[in-house]
Design a protein around this nucleic acid. Structure first.
Lengths: 373, 373
DNA sequence: CTGAAAGCGCTAACAC
DNA sequence: GTGTTAGCGCTTTCAG
C-alpha cells in the first residue's frame, strides 16, 4: 500500500478529491504529520506550523490552502511534540487523597461537585486535567507529576494529613493550589470556606433553637475539621455552655464510620439534643443511626451538616447545612493556579459560607419544598 | 549563575557532596536532564537510559553509580520526551458526558464511585488518567484526544445520546470501552449491568409486594434506560398487568428534574402505588416529592431505585435498589481497554445485578440497620 | 512572506 | 558493555 500519496504532483488539487480517496485508508490515527501536509501544500513544515498557529506572517492564500488540506485529512498537531518543544504540557493535575488506608474509592459527593467545577474551569483555559488518586506520602507522587513533565501545575483537594508534604512542594516553587484550610504557618496557596465561621453559625443556630447538648461529629486531625471544631467550641462558649468532651465524637468521612460512631455514642447512653456533623454524608448517616434507635429528627435531636451536597435538600428530613460554594471555589482554585503558572503570585482565599436552614434543625416544617439549588 | 555544574572534572565525586551544593540552586523542576547525569557519571546518555530502564546490558557498577547520581539530583526522566520517542502516552482518557445542556457539574454519586474504581485500576497499570467532560457532539472531541497524541485509549462513561459518535470511533479502531448498554448493532465494546434483568427483578419485586400501578421514572432516550423500561414492561406483562402510559414519566438524571416530574404527576391526579426509578438519585427526589404531598413511603407508595449508591442504605426510608457493581465494572472497563491497546480483541461484558431489598419497597421495617456495603 | 537548520529530551539500532 | 547516530513531530531563530 502506498504510504505517502504522491500529491506533490498536484499541489493545488481540490481537497475534496483527496478526502474521498484517502479517507478510507487512514485507519490508524496520527498517520498524517505536519510534514505530509507541507508536502501536499507545496510549502515547508515551518509554513504549516505558522499557518496553524495563526501567525500573521503567512500569505492568506497559502493559509487557506493549508487549512483545507488539514481539514480534509483531519490532521491534528501532536500536542506531545508541541509540548516538548515549547516546554509546556497544557495539562494540570488534580490530586485527590485516598480517603483512607484501603483503596477505598472517592466517595463523598462533595468532592465530585468540586471536581466537576474544576474540570470546567480547566477546560475553559484550554488545558487538560489529569486526575490522580494519591495515597499517604502524597508529596513525592505530586512532585513526580511535574518533574516528569506531565503537568504544569497541581491542585490538591483537601490537605488532609499532608500539610508538611504540601509545604515541601511550595518550597520548590511548583505551581500549586490546595482546597482546604488556611493555616497560620503555611506557604502554599489555599482556597476554602471559612470553616470556623461556618461551624460557629451552624452551632449558634442550634443553640438558638434551644439546644444545649450538642454533639460534634468529625475528625479533628484534618485541619478543616479542626477549625470547624474551633467554631463549635466558640459558639458554645458564647452561649455560656461548657463543651462536654463526651459529646466530641471522632468520625472519618465515610458513611459507615459515621454510623458506627453514632451508634456507639447512643449505646454509651450519652444524652444530647443536637448534632453538628462535619459533612452532609456524616450527618445523613448520623440521622439514620438516630432513627434506628427510635429517635426522631428534629424533634428529639436536631442535626446540622456541612457542604450542602445536592442530596441535602432531598433528604428526609431535609438537611440544614453549611453551604460551601463549590462553583466559585473550583473556579478560584483554577484561576489562582494559572496565575502562578503565569509567574504571578497568588494569595489564599477564604470563601464565605451560608447557613441553609431546612427541616433537620427543627425550624422548618418537613413538608416545605426544598429550595432548588 | 553557573548553569551547568562543572562536575565533569570529578566524575566519581560522591553524590552526597553535590546534593548539598546543588540542592538549593535547583528551584525549577526538570532542570537536570539525562545528558547531565551522563556527563556526571562519565558515561553516555544511552548508558544512562539503559541503566534506568533496567537493561541487563549495563555493568552493575555503572548502574549503581548512575542510580546514585539520579537519586541525589532527584532526576526524573521526562515522560513527554519518552512518550514521543516510544510512540505512546501511558495515559488514558475518561470521558464523562455533560449531563445536560448547561455546564452543569457531574453530579450523580454513581459516576464518582465508578470513576474512583477506574482511577484505581488505571493507576495499577502505571498509567495516568485524563478526565474530560465533553459536551454534545462528543465524538470529535474524543477523537482529538488520541489524534493529538494525548492518550492511548478512551473510556466513555455512559453512552447517553452519543451512540453514533461512538460507532465512528470504533470504526477508526481507536481503543475504546464504554460503560453502558449493549446494543444490537454496536461495534464498540461495552461494560454494563444487565439493565433489562435488573429492572425486571425490581418491578417483579414490587408486584410481589402487591403493587399494581407502578410508575416508571427515567429517560428512555438513553439506551440503558430504554432497556430498563423494557424490563419494567416485561415484569408488568408477566404479571398480567397492562402498562399504563400515564405512569411512564420521562425524567432526566438530576434531582431537581425528578422532583418536578414527580410533582406534576401528583398534581395530575394519577393514581399509583409504587415507583420504579432509573437511579437512586431520582428515587430519592421522588420520595421527597411524595412525602411533601403527605404520602408515606412505603405504605402509600413503594419505591425502588437503581445503582445502590452509598447513600441508598442511609436514606430514610432505606432505599430498595438494584445494585450495580462499580468495583468490578471499573476494573473490567480498564482491563478491556488495555486488552485493546495491546492489540488483543475484547468482548462486551454484561454484569449481573443484585436486588437489594430495604425499607422503601415495604418489606423490611424501617428500623433495621442498613447493610454495610 | 517562506525555507533551512537546529534542537526540545529521550530511545533504539548499529557499531565497536 | 558502551558510544554514536538518528530520529519521534513539532517550533523557532536566522537567513533570505
Amino acid at each position: 500500500m502506498a504510504e505517502k500519496p504522491a500529491a506533490t504532483a498536484a499541489p493545488h488539487s481540490p481537497p475534496a478529491a483527496s478526502t474521498a480517496q484517502e479517507g478510507q485508508a487512514k485507519v490508524k490515527a496520527g498517520v498524517v504529520k505536519m510534514d505530509d501536509i507541507a508536502r501536499m501544500a507545496g510549502v515547508s513544515k515551518s509554513t504549516v506550523s505558522r499557518a496553524l498557529s495563526g501567525s500573521p506572517l503567512v500569505n492568506e492564500e497559502t493559509r487557506v490552502r493549508i487549512q483545507a488540506l488539514v481539514e480534509s485529512h483531519s490532521y491534528r498537531v501532536d500536542t506531545r511534540a508541541q509540548g516538548l518543544r515549547k516546554g509546556q504540557t497544557r495539562t494540570i493535575a488534580v490530586v485527590i487523597p485516598l480517603l483512607h488506608e484501603h483503596d477505598q474509592p472517592i466517595s463523598d459527593p462533595f468532592f465530585l461537585e468540586l471536581l466537576g467545577h474544576i474540570a470546567d474551569a480547566v477546560a475553559d483555559h484550554g488545558y487538560d486535567l489529569l486526575l490522580s488518586k494519591i495515597g499517604p506520602g502524597r508529596a513525592s507522587g505530586m512532585t513526580d507529576l511535574v518533574d516528569t513533565g506531565r503537568v504544569d501545575g497541581l491542585i490538591a483537594i483537601g490537605q488532609s494529613t499532608a500539610h508538611l508534604g504540601l509545604e515541601q512542594l511550595a518550597a520548590r516553587n511548583l505551581p500549586l493550589v490546595v482546597w482546604g484550610a488556611q493555616l497560620a504557618d503555611q506557604h502554599y496557596v489555599t482556597v476554602g470556606s471559612d470553616n470556623r465561621a461556618g461551624a460557629e453559625r451552624a452551632v449558634s443556630h442550634l443553640i438558638a433553637q434551644g439546644r444545649r447538648r450538642i454533639v460534634f461529629l468529625g475528625q479533628r486531625s484534618v485541619p478543616e475539621m479542626r477549625l470547624r471544631h474551633d467554631g463549635y467550641v466558640a459558639a458554645l462558649e458564647a452561649a455560656g455552655i461548657t463543651p462536654d468532651p463526651a459529646l466530641d465524637v471522632p468520625t472519618r468521612f465515610a458513611s459507615a464510620a459515621a454510623l458506627t460512631a453514632m451508634r456507639s455514642l447512643l449505646c454509651g447512653g450519652a444524652s444530647f439534643d443536637a448534632v453538628f456533623a462535619c459533612s452532609d454524608v456524616i450527618a445523613i448517616s448520623a440521622i439514620r443511626a438516630l432513627q434506628d434507635q427510635g429517635l426522631t429528627v428534629p424533634e428529639d435531636v436536631a442535626v446540622v451538616g456541612y457542604d450542602d451536597i445536592q442530596m441535602a435538600a432531598f433528604y428526609n428530613p431535609a438537611l440544614t447545612t453549611v453551604r460551601q460554594d463549590t462553583a466559585t471555589g473550583g473556579r478560584l482554585l483554577v484561576d489562582l493556579l494559572f496565575a502562578q503558572i503565569a509567574g504571578r503570585s497568588a494569595r489564599s482565599v477564604m470563601l464565605p459560607t451560608e447557613l441553609v436552614v431546612r427541616a433537620s434543625s427543627g425550624t422548618v416544617s418537613g413538608t416545605t419544598p426544598p429550595a432548588p439549588r
